[in-house]
């Protein structure tokens, strides 16, 4: 199924924050930090990277939790520190913020396209889920939770591929 890509208000707002950023070079560096469980998906594209500030020589990075118990946060925090330390920012403070609460609407269109490439059906507001392999919309749920809290397990009725669906949240 082909859809016309439109920006969600939540993503548009994040993009506005990034475009107006005082330290765009730090945001660019953070494009080198990925979700440990979703290969190749950056924390920007996932929507958890919220803000970056320099305060008294300390680089402060705000990220949101996807799911409250998601263990990926600890890995992402470590990776953010490493990337920034390696680039010469010695003092880095990663803050996990609860507001705004993360939602899949914060994901970038590139992020959603990337999910499809790695065989994960991207989140759909109306739960119109398509098989990432053959694009059929005839699919059924196997389990409401997949390999991680953010995904559900589906199967395509046409090509029989079993795939993860990144839950709309």
């Amino acid at each position: 199924m082909k859809t016309i890509p439109i920006l969600s208000p939540e993503f548009a707002q994040r993009r506005a924050v990034r475009l107006a950023a005082s330290h765009p070079e730090i945001w660019d560096l953070l494009d080198g930090v990925y979700d440990p469980e979703l290969p190749g998906l950056t924390i920007w594209d996932l929507g958890v990277l919220q803000d970056v500030r320099m305060v008294d020589g300390v680089c402060e990075v705000d990220i949101t939790l996807t799911y409250s118990g998601c263990p990926a946060v600890d890995a992402m925090t470590k990776d953010i520190k490493k990337v920034l330390n390696d680039a010469g920012y010695e003092k880095v403070n990663v803050k996990v913020v609860l507001t705004p609460a993360w939602s899949t609407a914060m994901m970038s269109p590139e992020g959603k396209a990337h999910l499809k490439q790695i065989n994960i059906a991207p989140p759909s507001e109306k739960d119109e889920i398509c098989c990432p392999q053959c694009e059929s919309s005839k699919v059924h749920v196997i389990s409401q939770f997949g390999s991680t809290a953010c995904k559900a397990l589906y199967q395509c009725n046409d090509c029989h591929e079993t795939f993860d669906y990144f839950k709309h949240f």
Partner: peptide, 20 residues
């Protein structure tokens, strides 16, 4: 197996809640 994963994931949500 799927139920195993589901219950563990629900448990994880509650663990996150407890941590906060």
């Amino acid at each position: 197996l799927e139920e195993d994963l589901a219950l563990s994931n629900v448990a994880l949500d509650y663990l996150g809640r407890a941590r906060m």
